[in-house]
Computed example of a mutant assay.
Amino acid sequence: MSSPPSRDAFSFFHPLRVRWAEVDPQSIVFNGHYLTYADVAITEYFRALGIRYPDDLSRDGGDFFAIKTVLEYLAPARFDDELQVGIRVARLGRSSLSFALGIWRDEQALTAGEVIYVHADKTSRSSSPLPVWLREKVMAFERCAPEA
């Protein structure tokens, strides 16, 4: 198992509280809900950057499609836990965004993960370059340079 993600690697966090409906018969959060947590946090990340999803991301005739998700469960979340979901763009490619994900309860790392989206033409679904305005917003927020 890899080491837990560092909270210091993230500049954006979204709080979530575990609801009763998300807990399985083992009294822990059902694994599929962690992808929902990631999706909610990514939407809020875009909101923090001043990006309205999906309107702004589709205005150039493109859209984003998830092509890979990886989650590593380090410890379980339980009903009524207050979680902090950290999201950051770990890689900004020509046509893709790779998000790193970390979920914590207080200081305990519960989940580490990655979600990769590719930007593509809505109709043909063939990859297309990330819009320049999006690259600029992400680079300014994350204080990073794009990959070559």
Rank of each mutant, 00 (worst) to 15 (best):
A48C: 09
D8A: 04
L130C: 03
G32I: 05
V132G: 14
S58H: 15
I103V: 11
Q108E: 12
A100Y: 10
P5D: 02
S98C: 14
A148M: 14
D60W: 11
V29W: 06
D106V: 08
P4M: 00
S2P: 15
G93Y: 12
I42Q: 09
F64W: 14
F46M: 08
L110N: 06
R143N: 13
S27F: 14
W104Y: 02
D39V: 08
W20D: 01
G32D: 07
M139W: 08
E72R: 12
P76Y: 10
V118T: 06
G93T: 14
P131M: 02
R105H: 07
A9S: 07
K137D: 07
Y117M: 01
L57V: 13
S27E: 13
V85L: 10
D39G: 08
L57W: 10
A21K: 10
I116F: 03
L74Y: 09
Y53S: 15
G113R: 00
H119I: 04
Q84C: 10
L92Q: 14
K68S: 14
R7S: 00
R7E: 01
R78G: 08
E114A: 04
G93C: 12
R7I: 00
E114M: 05
R135H: 11
F13I: 00
T43V: 09
A148P: 14
D121R: 09
A41L: 03
E136N: 06
K137F: 06
L83E: 01
A90W: 10
E142C: 09
W104P: 05
M1R: 11
S124Y: 06
E82Y: 15
V138L: 08
A41T: 07
V132E: 15
V132A: 15
Q84V: 05
T123N: 09
F13M: 00
Q84N: 08
R143S: 11
F64L: 14
D8V: 02
I42R: 11
R47N: 07
D39Q: 12
S128E: 11
I51T: 09
Y117W: 08
D80K: 05
S96N: 08
Y45N: 04
F141D: 13
H119L: 02
F79S: 11
A148N: 11
S6M: 01
M139C: 14
S127A: 07
V29K: 03
E147V: 15
L16V: 00
T69H: 13
E22M: 04
V89G: 10
F79G: 11
I116Q: 02
L110P: 03
L97K: 07
F99N: 06
E142V: 06
W104E: 04
D80N: 09
F65K: 12
V70P: 15
P5L: 00
S126D: 13
R88C: 10
V29C: 05
L49T: 05
G93H: 12
P25L: 01
N31L: 13
A109T: 01
A120W: 02
D121P: 03
R91K: 13
H119R: 06
G32W: 05
E142N: 07
F12S: 02
P146R: 01
R78F: 12
Q108Y: 08
V18C: 00
P25Y: 02
C144P: 12
E147Q: 15
P5F: 00
V40W: 02
G113A: 03
A90T: 10
T111E: 05
